[in-house]
């Protein structure tokens, strides 16, 4: 490919996108994910995370997680001082593997849900929530 100015800009923007995402994931969140999955690969698939695109108040952000085959779902807020939000364990009488609750978000960030499926594999979904007023009292 010829190195024109336009190409250079496009490549630069692409590199930023690729490199920028992992940087924002804190080490604490990675540790939590590793502890939950035991180091297993996390794929995409049967899981949905419903969160608003824009939350005016970070103190109560409604979220919903659902996954047909999940035995456990871990919810993380990647940009919070402590990333873990909740872990849902579904028992025998859970009609659907879904739950909703309200969470606190410190600022605009990604919310991630990781489900442990009954066959032992892990899937994840994430959603970016823009927060106008943060919910950590700062």
């Amino acid at each position: 490919m010829e190195m024109t100015r336009r190409n250079a800009i496009a490549m630069g923007a692409g590199a930023l996108l690729v490199a920028g995402l992992p940087i924002r994931v804190s080490a604490a969140a990675e540790d939590l994910i590793a502890a939950f999955t035991g180091g297993a690969e996390v794929g995409a698939g049967d899981i949905s995370l419903t969160a608003p695109e824009i939350a005016e108040n970070g103190n109560t952000v409604p979220i919903e997680v659902a996954s047909e085959m999940a035995s456990e779902i871990l919810v993380l807020a990647m940009g919070n001082p402590t990333p873990s939000v909740a872990t849902f364990k579904f028992g025998k009488l859970a009609a659907s593997r879904s739950a909703s609750t309200r969470i606190r978000l410190a600022g605009t960030q990604d919310v991630v849900a990781i489900a442990k499926l009954e066959d032992g594999t892990f899937v994840q979904a994430s959603s970016t929530v823009k927060v106008t007023i943060g919910g950590c009292g700062g």
Partner: peptide, 10 residues
């Protein structure tokens, strides 16, 4: 259901 709640719950 058995839910573990963390400080990030409202």
């Amino acid at each position: 259901i058995d839910v573990t709640l963390e400080p990030a719950i409202s």
